[in-house]
Protein backbone atom coordinates (compact mmCIF):
# COMPACT_ATOMS: atom_id res chain seq x y z
CA UNK A 1 0.00 0.00 0.00
CA UNK A 2 1.36 3.42 -0.88
CA UNK A 3 1.50 6.14 1.69
CA UNK A 4 -0.44 9.25 0.90
CA UNK A 5 0.16 12.69 2.28
CA UNK A 6 3.34 14.52 3.07
CA UNK A 7 6.05 12.03 2.35
CA UNK A 8 9.48 13.07 1.25
CA UNK A 9 8.65 12.62 -2.43
CA UNK A 10 5.15 14.05 -2.55
CA UNK A 11 4.45 16.57 -5.29
CA UNK A 12 3.69 19.29 -2.81
CA UNK A 13 7.00 18.82 -1.06
CA UNK A 14 8.85 18.95 -4.38
CA UNK A 15 7.11 22.16 -5.37
CA UNK A 16 7.89 23.66 -1.97
CA UNK A 17 11.46 22.58 -2.29
CA UNK A 18 11.84 24.36 -5.64
CA UNK A 19 10.27 27.45 -4.18
CA UNK A 20 12.58 27.32 -1.19
CA UNK A 21 15.63 26.81 -3.38
CA UNK A 22 14.51 29.71 -5.57
CA UNK A 23 14.07 32.09 -2.67
CA UNK A 24 17.38 31.06 -1.12
CA UNK A 25 19.15 31.48 -4.47
CA UNK A 26 17.89 35.03 -4.70
CA UNK A 27 19.06 35.67 -1.16
CA UNK A 28 22.43 34.18 -2.01
CA UNK A 29 22.77 36.51 -4.99
CA UNK A 30 21.75 39.45 -2.86
CA UNK A 31 24.41 38.75 -0.26
CA UNK A 32 27.10 37.47 -2.57
CA UNK A 33 26.98 40.17 -5.23
CA UNK A 34 28.46 42.98 -3.10
CA UNK A 35 31.14 40.61 -1.87
CA UNK A 36 31.92 39.59 -5.43
CA UNK A 37 32.04 43.25 -6.41
CA UNK A 38 34.59 43.89 -3.66
CA UNK A 39 36.66 40.94 -4.87
CA UNK A 40 36.70 42.10 -8.49
CA UNK A 41 37.17 45.76 -7.62
CA UNK A 42 40.18 44.94 -5.45
CA UNK A 43 41.92 43.45 -8.47
CA UNK A 44 41.48 46.49 -10.71
CA UNK A 45 43.50 49.61 -11.28
CA UNK A 46 41.77 52.88 -10.58
CA UNK A 47 40.91 53.72 -14.22
CA UNK A 48 39.67 50.13 -14.78
CA UNK A 49 37.43 50.41 -11.73
CA UNK A 50 35.32 52.96 -13.55
CA UNK A 51 35.72 51.82 -17.15
CA UNK A 52 35.10 48.04 -16.90
CA UNK A 53 32.02 46.01 -15.99
CA UNK A 54 31.66 46.03 -12.21
CA UNK A 55 30.89 42.35 -11.69
CA UNK A 56 33.79 40.91 -13.60
CA UNK A 57 37.58 41.14 -13.57
CA UNK A 58 39.44 43.64 -15.72
CA UNK A 59 42.03 42.28 -18.21
CA UNK A 60 44.68 43.91 -16.09
CA UNK A 61 45.15 42.07 -12.75
CA UNK A 62 46.19 44.73 -10.28
CA UNK A 63 45.60 43.08 -6.86
CA UNK A 64 49.27 42.90 -5.78
CA UNK A 65 49.82 46.57 -6.59
CA UNK A 66 46.69 47.49 -4.70
CA UNK A 67 47.79 45.46 -1.70
CA UNK A 68 51.17 47.10 -1.81
CA UNK A 69 49.60 50.55 -1.87
CA UNK A 70 47.16 49.61 0.87
CA UNK A 71 49.85 48.53 3.31
CA UNK A 72 52.29 51.33 2.53
CA UNK A 73 49.97 54.32 2.18
CA UNK A 74 50.36 56.95 4.91
CA UNK A 75 53.28 55.03 6.46
CA UNK A 76 51.31 51.79 6.65
CA UNK A 77 48.42 53.18 8.67
CA UNK A 78 46.13 50.41 7.43
CA UNK A 79 48.15 47.86 9.37
CA UNK A 80 47.77 50.03 12.45
CA UNK A 81 44.00 50.15 11.93
CA UNK A 82 43.87 46.41 11.52
CA UNK A 83 45.75 45.99 14.75
CA UNK A 84 43.35 48.39 16.45
CA UNK A 85 40.32 46.54 15.14
CA UNK A 86 41.76 43.20 16.26
CA UNK A 87 42.55 44.62 19.68
CA UNK A 88 39.16 46.27 20.23
CA UNK A 89 37.10 43.41 18.89
CA UNK A 90 38.94 40.53 20.51
CA UNK A 91 38.91 42.10 23.99
CA UNK A 92 35.29 43.21 23.54
CA UNK A 93 34.19 39.82 22.24
CA UNK A 94 35.95 37.85 24.97
CA UNK A 95 34.54 40.14 27.64
CA UNK A 96 31.05 40.17 26.15
CA UNK A 97 30.99 36.37 25.83
CA UNK A 98 32.23 35.95 29.40
CA UNK A 99 29.73 38.39 30.89
CA UNK A 100 26.93 36.91 28.77
CA UNK A 101 27.82 33.47 30.09
CA UNK A 102 27.88 34.64 33.71
CA UNK A 103 24.57 36.43 33.33
CA UNK A 104 22.97 33.62 31.33
CA UNK A 105 24.07 31.10 33.96
CA UNK A 106 22.60 33.19 36.75
CA UNK A 107 19.35 33.66 34.89
CA UNK A 108 19.10 29.98 33.98
CA UNK A 109 20.13 28.38 37.24
CA UNK A 110 19.50 30.69 40.16
CA UNK A 111 16.37 32.28 41.52
CA UNK A 112 16.88 35.75 42.93
CA UNK A 113 14.90 38.83 43.70
CA UNK A 114 13.95 40.81 40.60
CA UNK A 115 14.97 38.06 38.17
CA UNK A 116 11.92 38.44 35.95
CA UNK A 117 12.25 42.20 35.76
CA UNK A 118 15.96 42.00 35.06
CA UNK A 119 15.48 39.50 32.29
CA UNK A 120 12.73 41.66 30.81
CA UNK A 121 15.24 44.50 30.80
CA UNK A 122 17.77 42.33 28.99
CA UNK A 123 15.14 41.44 26.41
CA UNK A 124 14.26 45.09 26.06
CA UNK A 125 17.93 45.93 25.60
CA UNK A 126 18.13 43.44 22.73
CA UNK A 127 15.68 45.64 20.84
CA UNK A 128 17.65 48.86 21.34
CA UNK A 129 20.39 49.30 18.75
CA UNK A 130 23.72 50.32 20.20
CA UNK A 131 23.74 53.23 17.77
CA UNK A 132 20.94 54.85 19.74
CA UNK A 133 23.05 54.77 22.88
CA UNK A 134 26.28 56.03 21.39
CA UNK A 135 25.64 59.74 21.84
CA UNK A 136 24.59 59.53 25.51
CA UNK A 137 27.55 57.26 26.13
CA UNK A 138 29.85 59.76 24.43
CA UNK A 139 28.55 62.54 26.64
CA UNK A 140 29.07 60.39 29.70
CA UNK A 141 32.57 59.28 28.77
CA UNK A 142 33.64 62.75 27.71
CA UNK A 143 32.63 64.03 31.15
CA UNK A 144 34.91 61.38 32.58
CA UNK A 145 37.62 62.36 30.12
CA UNK A 146 37.69 58.87 28.67
CA UNK A 147 36.95 59.56 25.02
CA UNK A 148 39.75 58.89 22.59
CA UNK A 149 40.82 55.84 24.55
CA UNK A 150 40.49 52.13 23.80
CA UNK A 151 38.32 51.92 26.90
CA UNK A 152 35.69 54.12 25.24
CA UNK A 153 35.31 51.59 22.44
CA UNK A 154 35.70 48.43 24.49
CA UNK A 155 33.64 49.12 27.63
CA UNK A 156 30.29 49.74 25.91
CA UNK A 157 30.83 46.61 23.81
CA UNK A 158 31.16 44.39 26.86
CA UNK A 159 27.41 44.64 27.30
CA UNK A 160 25.90 42.26 24.78
CA UNK A 161 22.22 41.57 25.56
CA UNK A 162 21.63 39.11 22.70
CA UNK A 163 24.47 37.03 24.15
CA UNK A 164 22.79 36.95 27.57
CA UNK A 165 19.57 35.86 25.94
CA UNK A 166 21.30 33.12 23.92
CA UNK A 167 23.33 31.84 26.85
CA UNK A 168 20.32 31.62 29.12
CA UNK A 169 18.47 29.47 26.60
CA UNK A 170 21.57 27.40 25.96
CA UNK A 171 22.42 26.84 29.63
CA UNK A 172 18.85 25.88 30.43
CA UNK A 173 19.34 22.88 28.17
CA UNK A 174 23.02 22.15 28.45
CA UNK A 175 23.44 21.97 32.22
CA UNK A 176 21.10 19.78 34.23
CA UNK A 177 20.25 20.94 37.72
CA UNK A 178 21.32 17.59 39.11
CA UNK A 179 24.83 18.19 37.80
CA UNK A 180 25.04 21.40 39.83
CA UNK A 181 23.55 19.62 42.83
CA UNK A 182 26.07 16.80 42.48
CA UNK A 183 28.77 19.46 42.66
CA UNK A 184 27.20 20.93 45.77
CA UNK A 185 27.01 17.49 47.40
CA UNK A 186 30.71 17.11 46.59
CA UNK A 187 31.34 20.28 48.54
CA UNK A 188 32.24 22.55 45.65
CA UNK A 189 31.28 26.21 45.83
CA UNK A 190 29.21 27.87 43.14
CA UNK A 191 32.22 29.46 41.42
CA UNK A 192 34.06 26.16 41.47
CA UNK A 193 31.03 24.34 40.04
CA UNK A 194 30.78 26.93 37.30
CA UNK A 195 34.42 26.85 36.38
CA UNK A 196 35.21 23.15 36.87
CA UNK A 197 31.98 21.51 35.74
CA UNK A 198 29.66 23.84 33.89
CA UNK A 199 31.97 25.97 31.77
CA UNK A 200 33.36 23.14 29.63
CA UNK A 201 29.81 22.10 28.80
CA UNK A 202 28.99 25.63 27.73
CA UNK A 203 31.79 25.92 25.19
CA UNK A 204 29.58 25.60 22.10
CA UNK A 205 27.28 28.35 23.39
CA UNK A 206 30.19 30.44 24.59
CA UNK A 207 31.92 30.22 21.20
CA UNK A 208 28.73 31.17 19.40
CA UNK A 209 28.38 34.31 21.47
CA UNK A 210 32.11 34.98 21.11
CA UNK A 211 31.89 34.90 17.32
CA UNK A 212 28.71 36.96 17.18
CA UNK A 213 30.23 39.57 19.44
CA UNK A 214 33.52 39.47 17.56
CA UNK A 215 31.87 40.06 14.19
CA UNK A 216 29.62 42.77 15.62
CA UNK A 217 32.62 44.58 17.06
CA UNK A 218 34.83 44.01 14.03
CA UNK A 219 32.21 45.69 11.88
CA UNK A 220 31.30 48.36 14.42
CA UNK A 221 31.50 51.77 12.84
CA UNK A 222 29.42 54.32 14.66
CA UNK A 223 30.76 53.80 18.18
CA UNK A 224 34.46 54.25 17.30
CA UNK A 225 33.54 57.05 14.89
CA UNK A 226 32.02 59.02 17.74
CA UNK A 227 34.46 58.05 20.46
CA UNK A 228 37.76 58.44 18.60
CA UNK A 229 39.24 61.27 16.65
CA UNK A 230 42.91 60.33 16.38
CA UNK A 231 43.55 58.50 13.06
CA UNK A 232 46.11 56.19 14.65
CA UNK A 233 43.43 54.89 17.02
CA UNK A 234 40.85 54.20 14.33
CA UNK A 235 39.64 50.72 13.56
CA UNK A 236 39.46 49.66 9.90
CA UNK A 237 35.83 50.69 9.49
CA UNK A 238 36.36 54.30 10.47
CA UNK A 239 39.73 54.51 8.73
CA UNK A 240 38.44 53.21 5.42
CA UNK A 241 35.39 55.45 5.60
CA UNK A 242 37.66 58.39 6.09
CA UNK A 243 39.80 57.34 3.13
CA UNK A 244 36.64 56.96 1.09
CA UNK A 245 35.43 60.45 1.92
CA UNK A 246 38.84 61.79 0.95
CA UNK A 247 38.48 59.88 -2.34
CA UNK A 248 35.06 61.25 -3.22
CA UNK A 249 35.97 64.77 -2.23
CA UNK A 250 38.50 64.50 -5.08
CA UNK A 251 41.26 66.28 -3.21
CA UNK A 252 44.08 64.28 -4.73
CA UNK A 253 42.63 61.05 -3.48
CA UNK A 254 41.36 59.50 -6.72
CA UNK A 255 43.79 56.65 -6.33
CA UNK A 256 42.25 55.78 -3.01
CA UNK A 257 39.13 54.14 -4.48
CA UNK A 258 40.93 50.88 -5.20
CA UNK A 259 42.76 51.10 -1.90
CA UNK A 260 39.41 51.36 -0.08
CA UNK A 261 38.10 48.34 -1.99
CA UNK A 262 41.23 46.32 -1.29
CA UNK A 263 41.10 47.37 2.37
CA UNK A 264 37.49 46.19 2.55
CA UNK A 265 38.48 42.83 1.08
CA UNK A 266 41.41 42.41 3.49
CA UNK A 267 39.24 43.35 6.44
CA UNK A 268 36.87 40.43 5.78
CA UNK A 269 39.62 37.82 5.89
CA UNK A 270 40.12 37.68 9.68
CA UNK A 271 36.37 37.35 10.24
CA UNK A 272 36.24 34.35 7.96
CA UNK A 273 39.33 32.94 9.67
CA UNK A 274 37.68 33.41 13.06
CA UNK A 275 34.66 31.45 11.89
CA UNK A 276 36.81 28.61 10.60
CA UNK A 277 38.90 28.41 13.77
CA UNK A 278 35.93 28.58 16.12
CA UNK A 279 33.98 26.03 14.14
CA UNK A 280 35.63 23.10 15.87
CA UNK A 281 34.16 24.21 19.19
CA UNK A 282 30.74 24.04 17.65
CA UNK A 283 30.39 20.38 18.33
CA UNK A 284 27.40 19.11 20.16
CA UNK A 285 27.27 16.20 22.53
CA UNK A 286 29.83 17.49 25.00
CA UNK A 287 27.50 16.70 27.85
CA UNK A 288 26.68 13.23 26.61
CA UNK A 289 26.75 10.52 29.23
CA UNK A 290 26.72 12.75 32.26
CA UNK A 291 23.05 12.67 32.98
CA UNK A 292 20.38 10.35 31.70
CA UNK A 293 17.85 12.37 29.77
Amino acid sequence: MSIVGKTATSGKFRRNRWLLTGVLSLYFLYTFMPLFYVITAATKSNPDLFSTFGLWFAPDFNLWDNLHTLFTIQDGIFLKWMGNTAYYSSISAAGAALFSTFAGYAFAKYSFFGKKLMFALVLGAVMIPQTALVIPMFLMLSKLGLTNTAFAVIAPSLVFPPGVFLMRAYIDDAISNELIEAGRMDGAGEVHIFSAIAFRLLMPGFTTVLILAFVANWNNYFLPLVMLNKPDMFPITVGLAQMYSTAISGTGGVLLFTVVMTGALVSIVPVIAAFLIMQRFWQGGLGAGGVKA
Binding site: S176, E178, L179, M185, G290, V291, K292
Partner: peptide, 16 residues
Protein backbone atom coordinates in the same frame (compact mmCIF):
# COMPACT_ATOMS: atom_id res chain seq x y z
CA UNK B 1 28.64 19.39 51.89
CA UNK B 2 28.79 20.34 55.56
CA UNK B 3 26.24 17.67 56.35
CA UNK B 4 28.74 15.06 55.16
CA UNK B 5 26.17 13.15 53.20
CA UNK B 6 26.54 11.64 49.76
CA UNK B 7 23.83 11.44 47.19
CA UNK B 8 23.23 9.26 44.16
CA UNK B 9 20.96 10.91 41.64
CA UNK B 10 18.37 9.35 39.38
CA UNK B 11 20.07 10.76 36.30
CA UNK B 12 23.52 9.74 37.68
CA UNK B 13 24.62 13.39 37.32
CA UNK B 14 28.18 12.42 36.43
CA UNK B 15 30.50 15.20 35.32
CA UNK B 16 30.50 14.54 31.57
Amino acid sequence: AERQLSMVFQSYALYP
